[in-house]
């Protein structure tokens, strides 16, 4: 089983990472995601393929770079190189709330039980858990807290105004 959660369910990961598109290479079939540079360089070629496409951002990339491409993408992959590095939280909110991305936003890297609640609030819905984590045990992390004060990708209003 992949150590993967999608929309709060343990799931299997259909997507293949793909790099190394050289001149004359044939494109793989199936659902692939490519690094941002690859996407920017070979967008048109990649779009001729018959299969879903995703883009992986470094956590220093501004998601605005792909805002006009989001309609053609089904996946954006974000990275947590260390659990303490929280830049992708902002990237996810921008993708969901500002640029209206409807596809999967996937967290990769140091994706751990105690982050899942915050990640989901910021609009991430796919989670490639770190190898030592247990996906089915981690599902309860989404519901450990039910009260949220501030607007995020899951709530438009702050708690104090929702009550009225």
């Amino acid at each position: 089983m992949d150590n993967y959660i999608k929309d709060r369910k343990v799931d299997s990961n259909e997507w293949m990472p793909f790099t190394g598109l050289e001149d004359g290479d044939s494109l793989p079939t199936g659902d692939i995601y490519v690094p941002l540079e690859e996407w920017l360089n070979a967008r048109e070629t990649l779009l001729t393929r018959n299969g879903r496409l995703g883009v992986a951002l470094r956590n220093t990339d501004d998601p605005a770079i792909i805002k006009d491409d989001l309609e053609r993408l089904d996946l954006v992959v974000l990275e947590f190189p260390k659990m303490a590095d929280g830049r992708a939280f902002t990237q996810a909110r921008l993708l969901r709330e500002r640029y209206g991305f409807k596809g999967e936003i996937r967290a990769t890297g140091d994706v751990l039980y105690d982050q899942l609640f915050y990640m989901q609030r910021c609009g991430m819905n796919g989670f490639e858990l770190r190898d030592d984590q247990n996906a089915s045990n981690s599902l309860k992390a989404f519901d450990e807290m039910t009260v949220t004060y501030q607007p995020a990708s899951d709530e438009e209003l702050p708690l104090w105004r929702r009550n009225k």
Binding site: G86, Y118, M119, P158
Partner: peptide
Amino acid sequence: ELIRQWSTFHPEFNFL
């Protein structure tokens, strides 16, 4: 108090 509520478990700013 408004800042307290806004900042408590702010999902985006918990790993600054």
